[in-house]
Amino acid sequence: MFNRKKIQRPEGPLTEQALRQWLVDYLVVHVEIPREDIDTAKTFEAYGLDSRVAVQVSGALEKVIERRLSPGLLYEYQSIDALTGYLAAELKL
């Protein structure tokens, strides 16, 4: 319940690749998906992410990019690739 394992914020300037890596690390540590099973094109739903985890992911992501994110983001951009692509475009990375 009190999962305090922390994924470090990417060092240096934020890039699309760094965000993608951060999301992969987050899923490995917090959702306990084996790293070799992660496919960045696969939907979050396919990993069994429920709405509570989706809120946690987006809350943690907000701290990485230091901006607020739409609560609907993970429903609209349903894979790591789609999400990082969207964020990179929005944040002009």
């Binding site: 901006r67 739409s70 609907g72 983001l73 609209e76 951009y77 929005e90």
Partner: peptide, 8 residues
């Protein structure tokens, strides 16, 4: 920066 596409 939004994700929703409403109203339809």
């Amino acid at each position: 920066m939004g994700a929703f596409d409403f109203p339809s």
